[in-house]
């Protein structure tokens, strides 16, 4: 019977009191909770701001742009200029440059601060692309992506379009606008017209003049003949294929096919 105790001592681990196993299992499970929470936090977006255990002066009692200040009725930390005052950069002494008017009527020339050259046109092209293209389209024909979207909405049920109304933006190359003076174009960009809002707040003055120059370039380029373009004869022939042309060509091909 001496083998009895020996067998019992074979494997010491099973001699441990059961409590040790429970504690070990619990601790292992508990140790898996933090990584599970971290993986969840890393893999899913969340609505709540992070918990700020250590403040580190991350949020200081001072106001930065567009922050909230409940001392004021509108909760804005940023204040409007006091009525009747003009900020230094917003002085409108020179009406030609700032308003596009000379002696109460639209200016017919560019102001002296603006030099019309290739740099100005390129700047105008870029700014046109940012502020005008969404409605007026890339070459100003009133067919920008916002216009197309609005037209799509008009075809939908009122419950979907939420009362959308839309008037097509002006074709900037039509005669009524091409005949306008630069001052009037500048004034319209600044103050808006009909359904178009004014862009004085969004576009600095010099950039608005650049856009005027680019709009005039579009108007000239749209109706330009080959003779007006230097070296036009030596350019490779390029024909814009319209949908109608394609269908006509296809029809022709079909006819030929039938004939033969």
């Amino acid at each position: 019977m001496s083998s009895g105790p020996k067998r019992q001592s074979d494997f010491l681990l099973w001699k441990l009191p059961r409590g040790f196993f429970y504690v070990a299992i619990l601790m292992t499970c508990a140790a898996l909770i933090p990584p599970a929470l971290i993986i969840r936090a890393r893999s899913t977006p969340r609505d709540s701001r992070r918990i700020h255990l250590i403040q580190n002066m991350d949020n200081q009692p001072k106001y930065k742009g567009q922050q909230q200040n409940i001392l004021f009725r509108d909760n804005r930390a940023m204040r409007q200029p006091v009525p009747g005052t003009v900020a230094r950069s917003q002085m409108v002494g020179d009406t030609h440059f700032h308003l596009g008017t000379v002696d109460g009527s639209y200016a017919t020339t560019y102001p002296s601060q603006v030099t019309v050259d290739m740099d100005l046109l390129k700047r105008g092209q870029e700014r046109f692309g940012i502020y005008c293209l969404p409605c007026h389209g890339a070459i100003g024909e009133g067919d920008g992506p916002v216009h197309n979207r609005a037209m799509m909405l008009l075809n939908l049920a009122p419950s979907v379009s939420n009362g959308t109304t839309w008037v097509q933006p002006k074709n900037l190359r039509e005669e009524a606008i091409a005949s306008q003076s630069v001052g009037q174009l500048f004034f319209t960009i600044s103050n808006g017209k009909n359904n178009m809002a004014g862009y004085a707040a969004q576009i600095p003055v010099a950039d608005r003049w650049a856009i005027v120059a680019y709009v005039q370039a579009l108007q000239v380029a749209g109706d330009a003949s080959n003779e007006s373009v230097p070296g036009a004869d030596s350019l490779p022939e390029h024909r814009i294929v319209m949908d109608e042309d394609v269908t006509e060509a296809e029809v022709d091909e079909d006819k030929e096919g039938n004939g033969s």
């Binding site: 939420n162 009362g163 008037v167 359904n195």
Partner: peptide, 9 residues
């Protein structure tokens, strides 16, 4: 600029 006319309701 746009939403006076687009989705006003």
């Amino acid at each position: 600029n746009c939403h006076l006319q687009v989705h006003p309701d």
